[in-house]
Amino acid sequence: MIRQLTSSCQGNTVRPGRYRFIKHLKTIQMKRVTIFFAFLLISLAGFSQNTDRFTTLFNGKDLSGWMMPGKVPGFEVLDGVLVAAPHNGSELYTEKQYGNFIFKFEYLLSEVGNSGVLIRCNPENPWGTGVEVQLLAPWTPYRDDLHCTGSIYGHVAVSNRPDETTGIWHTMEIKCDRKNITISVDGKVTTVADVDTVKSMQGKNMAGAIGFQSNHSKEGEFAKFRNVSVLNLDDDPEYVKKGFYSADADIRKQAGEAADLKGASIVETLAQMLDENNPKAQAGAKQALFDIAAKKSAANVSKDEKKPVEKALKRSFKNSSSEISKNYLNWLLEMLSAD
């Protein structure tokens, strides 16, 4: 429209009103372009920051940080890639436990590939304690929306079927945020689940190992994995803190377990909660502080291991505004210093 108006004015005297109109349109157009590029830069910057926060779980050389509890190995490292080839071998699990996280990886399935990702599970009873996010080639007649790639196998069907092309690399991202689970493939959300609305997921773990399922197809088929990483949301004390304020007892319990794992780095955050007027959060923070201090009070813990907790408790004592809180913190300090 701008070009038409401009060309129609060539060779003629441009009336002031029309000139102002054209100038106004150009200004609007430039503002829109500026806003678009500003938004794009902000988005890219945010993505870069999130990517930097991920921790690599597979080094491309060996299985450091992982365990295979079964008698028959189900995985090996070939040319920098994690390969599940042996038929029905042992599943592969992280040595660390994760409650709230974003797990990201690339996968490639053979023509009849059948694997999966186990989340929040106990390796001794993975399907009983956790759930499986399916990875399945499209050959099988049983590949309905409740059992295809991206589904929470047998529990939650996909709402958006992903690209299931075999022989090429795909990216999957699994986000566990309290009782909300979101799964995406190649950047597109396939499945969203609220655990409380899925009867078959009631009583499942809120934290546990992350695992890859071994080759559950016939001999000669495989699944490959690379660029495996995790963003542990429970590494952020403020994220953990919010869990203590939840009305859901399961979420509060998991927050306490996450705080116990964090140890000294969350002590001051927990101590501040003692001064707040929220009985549930106070009770949870009090218990978490006790658990952290008790763990460091064990006979086999060295003085150097105790020091970070002692320092955090002393700073918390100094900054506390409540005598009741001060007394409790002092009691924890005495427990730590007792021989």
Rank of each mutant, 00 (worst) to 15 (best):
L82H: 13
F244N: 06
A209I: 09
V156W: 04
G130I: 10
V158C: 02
E323G: 07
L135E: 12
L289G: 13
M335S: 01
P141N: 06
S229Y: 07
R18G: 11
L231E: 15
D52H: 00
Y239D: 02
G220R: 02
A223G: 05
R143A: 14
L233Y: 14
K242C: 10
N100F: 06
D248A: 08
A271S: 07
Q287A: 14
K179M: 11
N277Y: 06
V228M: 15
Y19L: 14
G243A: 14
N232R: 07
S7R: 10
N278G: 02
F75H: 09
E106G: 02
C176Q: 03
E132V: 09
K296M: 14
K61N: 02
I266D: 13
Q49K: 11
P73H: 12
T171Q: 05
S90K: 03
I119E: 06
M273E: 05
A285W: 09
T165V: 06
G220P: 00
T34R: 12
E257L: 07
V198T: 12
V240R: 07
G211V: 07
G116V: 10
G220M: 02
Q134R: 06
P16L: 01
K242T: 13
G60R: 03
A45D: 08
L274F: 01
N88L: 06
E219K: 08
S110H: 09
L92N: 01
S115I: 06
D250W: 13
A85T: 06
A84R: 07
Y142P: 03
A312G: 11
G263A: 13
N12E: 08
G256Y: 08
P279A: 06
D163C: 02
Q10D: 11
R315I: 10
E310I: 15
A259T: 03
L270C: 10
W66S: 04
T51S: 01
L332F: 00
I168L: 05
P69Q: 01
G154P: 00
G220E: 00
K104S: 12
G154Y: 03
S8F: 10
T191N: 13
E164N: 09
F58E: 04
A298L: 15
W127Y: 12
Y98S: 00
V189L: 07
N215M: 04
D248Y: 09
V267T: 08
A288P: 15
R32N: 09
G116W: 04
E323F: 01
V81A: 11
T197P: 13
D62C: 00
P126V: 10
N88E: 08
T191E: 08
T197A: 15
T129D: 06
A288F: 11
H87N: 12
V228H: 14
A285V: 14
T129Q: 03
K295A: 15
F290T: 15
G263W: 14
A207N: 11
K295D: 15
L332I: 01
A299E: 11
R315D: 12
E276S: 05
D275F: 05
P123M: 02
Q29W: 05
N114P: 02
K218W: 08
E305G: 07
V301H: 09
G167I: 00
G11S: 13
G130L: 13
T129E: 06
F39N: 04
L270W: 03
K242I: 08
Y153Q: 03
G46N: 03
G116I: 09
D291K: 09
G243D: 14
S48K: 12
P237T: 02
S320E: 00
F103K: 00
I292S: 10
S184F: 11
D275Q: 05
K326I: 04
I102R: 05
